[in-house]
Design a protein around this nucleic acid. Structure first.
Lengths: 76, 76
DNA sequence: AAAAAATGATCTTCAAAAGATCAAAAAGGG
DNA sequence: CCCTTTTTGATCTTTTGAAGATCATTTTTT
């Protein structure tokens, strides 16, 4: 799955969603969805703007987490 | 800007877009847009599926390139 | 050379981001 | 503490681009 770390990044920087909206022009609804990880798509422009604004790389914002192989049933 | 390295990844692996479509179920149009870097949005599911299929991390697929600061005019 | 597969281009359909608005909750100032 | 302002959550409509399908062209395979 793809994890979004916007909430962590904002927390670390003590920034509010409203700050980001004001400073970047990114739609507040979009930010809210990313913040709460309910977004299903992302505009590449948004990723770009966020990385620039937060001065971080993509991997800081979006992380691919390899899904575990379903573990075989334990032998009793 | 956000760069997509799908074409490089497929090239390295000698895979065709049709292979990826067949194996992952991702829409061919979507892959074509990513391949030619004309996509403006991405479905997070697609990123997930591509990373899994190509066995790579997000940074391998998508890269944030910091835009240069406009260079000051050279002193003559 | 013919057949099959892959790609490019384009059209319609559909889902989610953008945009706007309202109510509720937090934060600040007196 | 009360009142004002700001921030956030929720929801509705509009807009945008991916999904899906199809046709034409190019490339590959036999």
């Amino acid at each position: 799955m793809i994890k979004c770390h916007l909430s962590r990044l904002l927390g670390e920087r003590k920034l509010k969603i409203s700050d980001v909206t004001r400073d970047t022009g990114i739609n507040r609804g979009t930010l809210t969805r990313l913040y709460h990880e309910t977004a299903e798509r992302v505009e590449l422009d948004v990723l770009d703007a966020l990385c620039t604004y937060l001065n971080c790389g993509l991997p800081d914002l979006l992380e691919y987490q390899k899904s575990e192989q379903a573990s075989p049933p334990p032998t009793p």
